[in-house]
Deep mutational scan, measured.
Amino acid sequence: GTEDLKEEAKKALKKGDKERAKRALKKAGLSEDQIKKFIKEVL
């Protein structure tokens, strides 16, 4: 589900894998702006 994808994105970001995080967030249905915001909040 969406929460799982967001968790996956957080883990990817902590490993420095932004591309993987972006893919997971796109799958979760987030827009580009939401993805940028999510990444900023996590990092």
Results as ranks from 00 to 15, higher is better:
Gly1Trp: 13
Thr2Val: 15
Thr2Phe: 14
Glu3Thr: 11
Glu3Tyr: 04
Asp4Tyr: 13
Asp4Ile: 11
Asp4Ser: 13
Asp4Gly: 11
Asp4Lys: 13
Leu5Met: 07
Leu5Lys: 04
Lys6Thr: 07
Lys6Val: 14
Lys6Tyr: 15
Glu7Ser: 08
Glu7Ala: 11
Glu8Val: 09
Glu8Thr: 08
Glu8Tyr: 10
Ala9Asp: 01
Ala9Trp: 03
Ala9Lys: 01
Ala9Arg: 01
Lys10Thr: 08
Lys11Thr: 11
Lys11Gly: 07
Ala12Ile: 04
Ala12Gly: 02
Ala12Ser: 06
Ala12Cys: 08
Leu13Met: 05
Leu13Gln: 01
Lys15Phe: 09
Lys15Val: 14
Lys15His: 12
Gly16Gln: 03
Gly16Ser: 02
Asp17Arg: 03
Asp17Leu: 07
Asp17Pro: 01
Asp17Gly: 02
Lys18Met: 15
Lys18Glu: 13
Lys18Val: 15
Lys18Trp: 15
Lys18Asn: 12
Glu19Lys: 07
Glu19Ser: 08
Arg20Gln: 11
Ala21Gln: 00
Ala21Phe: 03
Ala21Ile: 04
Lys22Phe: 09
Lys22His: 12
Arg23Leu: 07
Ala24Thr: 08
Ala24Lys: 06
Ala24Leu: 15
Leu25Gln: 00
Leu25Tyr: 00
Leu25Trp: 00
Leu25Phe: 01
Lys26Ser: 10
Lys26Phe: 05
Lys27Leu: 13
Lys27Trp: 04
Ala28Met: 10
Ala28Ser: 05
Gly29Val: 00
Gly29Trp: 01
Gly29Glu: 02
Leu30Thr: 00
Leu30Cys: 05
Leu30Ser: 00
Ser31Glu: 05
Ser31Asn: 11
Ser31Trp: 01
Glu32Ala: 08
Glu32His: 07
Asp33Met: 07
Asp33Asn: 08
Gln34Ser: 05
Gln34Leu: 06
Gln34Gly: 05
Gln34Phe: 05
Ile35Tyr: 02
Ile35Trp: 02
Lys36Gly: 08
Lys36Ile: 14
Lys36Val: 12
Lys36Ser: 09
Lys37Trp: 06
Phe38Ile: 10
Ile39Glu: 05
Ile39Asn: 01
Ile39Lys: 00
Ile39Thr: 02
Ile39Met: 09
Lys40Leu: 13
Lys40Val: 11
Lys40His: 15
Glu41Ser: 10
Glu41Ile: 09
Glu41Asn: 10
Val42Gln: 09
Val42Phe: 15
Val42Asn: 09
Val42Glu: 08
Val42Trp: 15
Leu43Arg: 05
Leu43His: 05
Leu43Gly: 06
Leu43Val: 06
Leu43Cys: 12
